[in-house]
Design a protein around this nucleic acid. Structure first.
Length: 471
RNA sequence: GGCGGGGUAGCCAAGUGGUAAGGCACGGCUCUGCAAAAGCUGCAUUCGUCGGUUCGAUUCCGACCCUCGCCUCCA
């Protein structure tokens, strides 16, 4: 069994075989955030799934080069810049930093390269120039440049690799912007947008006059610059499938004139959307949550990560607070088990249990089937708990189990819970309670227990003595 | 209208042509001064509906119902 992924190009699950003849190196590009505001939980589902994909590739032995762009010039950003009167970079910097902070809170590995669109203007201009030279793009009288789908197709190339398109049946036109009146065909899309007064100071010089990049071209420029004109894996939210990714393919394959059989990207992976309480997230419904919002409600980054990793990436995921509370309980079950294992193992070292690791690997290799993988993990936890409650788990077996978790956690990336020490006053209350119990003053002991609970801590009476846990 | 996902216990969810993983919640038990916490344990004769193929279908085929998403802002 080897890694298999759902490839949108094939609309099916395929064996993952990288372009690298040695089969080792993988180029991986993920469409990153547009830094006009804080990212919401839906955005982060995609980024957590990208992190899962990267970790799974590494778990399977591949050496991954992970690139994720930062879109720091775009319509919404320009509008905010105009409204706030800030300079472009001053506006985007804060949200970019917040994004990386949230990514770390969710235990996502930092991509190896995170290029910004605004730092790739020369490459973008070069790419647009090549498309014009090849006769696939055209300039309009206002100084904008558009991609001609018709000329691309007559160049013998396919527009509509990711989705089945039927322009006659599509409901085209509602959202075509007024500044795009000069397009030859409604389906053509902007590569370079001529400067308009509303752009303020956001513009760059180009062979076609002052302006800024179109929406899709940045990803083509950055991904090919970092990973070459043909690379292995491109991931993004399902809404980007069309037009964004389709247009990326068209621009890239149009500009590079890939040979027949060679593609811009070999595997396209799309992450389904997250819903909140059964509905699409929207500000008017008030169900629009950022990572910060959830943390302010007391949930930890690892609880949020766990919740986002419970379901398959190609299924819509319904985010609910009941679900998040359930995630907390499930994760605590694993944490309890790990804590007990650590007590038993002491400093003993061991290697992972091969049979559990194999079951886990089989699930992950099957198109990142995390639900099946969790099934493996929880069955394993149950067996360990049973062995421990029956006293039949040796120090060596506990160490093996911990090593197994280390291996599993290379993919899930949840780590171990942060140890939180109880404050002195709570510890003093606990000591007083223990004294009261010893004196058989149970009324006093129960009162102290209530005080500890009010302070946010729970007493766990175990055969080894009383412990404090954060409520 | 076109294209593409889904419908499996109270909730989330995996899965297979041969008789339904796992988690949460819930009940029982152990532990405890009592609790809590924790652990153990129980919990779908059944997989949207109706037909068909088959020795056998939740799994394959057909029809239908419901639901979600995309169709040029979007993760």
């Amino acid at each position: 069994m080897a890694l298999r992924l759902h490839n949108t190009l094939a609309r099916s699950v395929e064996p993952f075989v990288p372009l690298d003849p040695s089969g080792k190196h993988v180029g991986f590009y993920c469409c990153g955030p547009t830094v006009y505001d804080f990212g919401h939980i839906g955005n982060f589902r995609t980024f957590v799934c990208a992190d899962l994909a990267r970790r799974a590739l590494e778990f399977c032995g591949f050496s991954v080069r992970h690139v994720m762009n930062i879109t720091d010039v775009e319509d919404k950003i320009i509008r905010r810049v105009r409204e706030t009167g800030k300079e472009l970079r001053d506006y985007t910097r804060g949200y970019e930093e917040a994004f990386f902070e949230d990514l770390r809170r969710l235990s996502c590995l930092q991509p190896h390269l995170t290029p910004r669109a605004t730092e790739y203007i020369p490459q973008i201009i070069a790419l647009v120039s090549r498309l014009i030279e090849r006769g696939i793009a055209y300039q309009t009288s206002d100084g904008s440049v558009y991609f001609s789908i018709e000329r691309y197709q007559s160049d013998g190339r396919q527009y509509g690799q990711l989705v089945t398109l039927n322009f006659d049946e599509m409901r085209v036109g509602d959202r075509v912007q007024q500044d795009e009146y000069a397009k030859e065909t409604a389906a053509d899309f902007a590569l370079w947008k001529a400067r308009v007064p509303e752009d303020g100071s956001v513009f760059w010089p180009s062979p076609w006059g002052e302006g800024r990049p179109g929406w899709h071209i940045e990803c083509s420029a950055m991904s090919m610059d970092a990973l070459g004109s043909s690379f292995d894996l491109h991931l993004g939210g399902e809404d980007l499938m069309f037009p964004h990714h389709e247009d990326e393919i068209a621009q890239s394959e149009g500009a590079c004139a890939h040979s027949p059989g060679v593609r811009f990207v070999k595997y396209w992976v799309h992450v389904a959307h997250l819903l909140v309480e059964g509905k699409k997230m929207s500000k008017s419904l008030g169900n629009f949550f950022t990572v910060r919002d959830l943390m302010a409600k007391g949930f930890s980054g690892r609880e949020i990560r766990f919740e986002l990793l419970r379901s398959h990436y190609r299924e819509n995921f319904n985010f609910t607070f009941d679900g998040l509370a359930g995630a907390r309980a499930s994760l605590a079950r694993i944490d309890e088990c790990l804590e007990k294992l650590a007590e038993r193992a002491g400093g003993t070292r061991a290697t992972a249990d091969p049979s559990v690791e194999k079951e886990f690997r089989d699930a992950i290799e099957d198109d990142l089937n995390v639900a099946a993988a969790w099934g493996v993990v929880f069955t394993w936890v149950k067996n360990l708990n049973k062995a421990m409650s029956e006293g039949g788990l040796t120090q060596q077996a506990a160490a093996t189990a911990l090593a197994t978790w280390e291996r599993i956690d290379q993919v899930f990336g949840l780590g171990r819970p942060a140890e939180v020490a109880a404050p002195d006053e709570v510890v003093k209350l606990l000591e007083a309670r223990q004294a009261a119990r010893k004196a058989r003053d149970f009324k006093g002991a129960d009162s102290l227990r209530d005080q500890i609970k009010a302070a946010g801590w729970v007493i766990e009476d175990t055969p080894q003595g009383a412990k404090l846990k954060k409520a």
